[in-house]
Nucleic acid binder design. Sequence first.
DNA 1: TCGCCATCCTGGTACTACCAAAATGGCGGT
DNA 2: ACCGCCATTTTGGTAGTACCAGGATGGCGA
Lengths: 230, 230
Amino acid sequence: MQGQEILPAIATHLLDSARTNGGKAPSERDLAEHFSVSRGQVREALAILEAMQVIERRAKSGIYVNTDNTGIEAMAFLARAGLPLENRQIYEAVEVRKIHEIKAAELAAARADDENFDRLRDILVRSEERIAQGEGIDGLDQEFHLEIVRATQNTLFLNICTAFYELGGNRLKVYFRDPDRNRKSHEEHKQIFEALVNRDAALASALMVSHLRGAMSYWSELLQPAELSD
Amino acid sequence: MQGQEILPAIATHLLDSARTNGGKAPSERDLAEHFSVSRGQVREALAILEAMQVIERRAKSGIYVNTDNTGIEAMAFLARAGLPLENRQIYEAVEVRKIHEIKAAELAAARADDENFDRLRDILVRSEERIAQGEGIDGLDQEFHLEIVRATQNTLFLNICTAFYELGGNRLKVYFRDPDRNRKSHEEHKQIFEALVNRDAALASALMVSHLRGAMSYWSELLQPAELSD
DNA sequence: TCGCCATCCTGGTACTACCAAAATGGCGGT
DNA sequence: ACCGCCATTTTGGTAGTACCAGGATGGCGA
């Protein structure tokens, strides 16, 4: 085990032992021995986790875990590292995503340039092909939505939205297993694209609202009932 | 120089040398010597910067700086560390902040609980005192706006919005040097609060739009002459 | 002038050694 | 038996050294 690969391992280990103990994690030396790496490696990982406010290192005392109070990029980072997220976290993320993308559609209608339109067209063509072959469009769905955000010409906005997509990542694939959902999504994408081309901000926004409503209801029934980790 | 204190110093140094050179930064050993710290300390700082995607460490090659492609929390972190932001970054941040807070007002009207109202009331009282003493309400303005976001009961949302506030931080103080602006802001805050208490989502949202328009025009003339949509 | 190879440089990693303060546990007094 | 004090241990913080292996570079020879 080497490189940044130990970060997710350490993070998982810390979160676990924090659950059993009272937020107190093993010492650096213990972690180093447990993962058979040098203390320096452990400290690098801990530095990152501390910067993300996932943990707190108290000098001469120990390492303490913050289960809550985790920012988006920290969550995106942890999700990327393969760590499980609480349903509540995903639920909140979905709500914020909705806020972002509805507004993005509105702004994109006014600001999208030829390159944005070209990329969107390309994504729709590839989606069509995928669907024709009976495959899911999960990756392309992300591309489509993020391209709309990119069309707002606000790179910071794009960064946040990208981070949010990474949160739901693996769970989204399940959504696009249903062929009907794929077709329906694709049709709605095409309508949104038309609205953008016509510079109709109100329509684009409205279409995005209803488009996301479908996905939202899916998340609702998937998450709300119980806290079963798939 | 010790502790995490070297991170901003190193970050600044890296960004500087990246500007002069072609994105290439000094080696770890040089950095360690330059700041009179051990290589381990440098590596901890670099690990954080790499996790934030501010830099890229290529094994056996060197350290390379990503001037663009910086996420919100990375920016917030760097801003917190006292690093300067580009006008464009602030400009984009302001636009996103606007998107967030208008929606936050709408959601807060429906979800705010007694604790939220209590805190908002308290903030308004303290604002009144400050203004009576001829002081600026810059810190309280932030508290007010973030409390509204907190009232959405979406902790993730709150995290993002907090990060965004930290971006503009120091520049906001200038805004609240003008007594008239303070009074006007405070009056608008009170109106928004009333709308929230009355659970009038549409009104709260509309008031927030006009409230932010004032601040936005300030930013516009301060930064770049361009379009900030609402 | 061009291509190849020895050398240097660089990040990656491990190990050792101290320091100082927090945490702990045992001892002694009450 | 309980409590308070103090010596010991633990822990994060930091520095320094040593090696490795592969990229980067420059000089030498064809």
